[in-house]
């Protein structure tokens, strides 16, 4: 996990959650953020009803929660939910 974290640009913190919603490891700004883990899990559960395509050929790989200066990137791998908090600075000017 440490090598993976080093590769992520603008990383501020990480969370690893097992499928029961328990935090396995936490680093950086997300250290001991049980509440954030709970929120992420409930967001995933709330949005699990939707389907990208009717035949299910395409599926979501990543959920991004974007704020003004940072964002949470959530993905599922090996039955574990990985949450990365990354700095966010939009390159393109925001259109009105």
């Amino acid at each position: 996990m440490a090598q993976i974290i080093e590769k992520i640009p603008d990383i501020l913190g990480t969370l690893v959650i097992n499928e029961d919603g328990a935090v396995i490891s936490s680093t950086g700004e997300l250290q001991n953020e049980e509440h954030a883990a709970k929120s992420v899990m409930s967001m995933l559960q709330a949005s699990s009803r939707g389907q990208l395509t009717s035949d299910g050929s395409q599926q979501f790989k990543r959920m991004s929660v974007v704020f003004d200066t940072f964002m949470y990137v959530v993905t599922l791998s090996n039955k574990r939910v990985y949450v990365a908090k990354r700095g966010y600075n939009p390159q393109e000017p925001v259109l009105a």
């Binding site: 993976i4 992520i8 995933l44 939707g50 979501f60 790989k61 990137v73 599922l76 791998s77 090996n78």
Partner: peptide
Amino acid sequence: RPALLVDVPALDRVLSA
């Protein structure tokens, strides 16, 4: 269980995208 996301093997690529 969160069924929204599909299990991906290349974790670092998705998180660093």
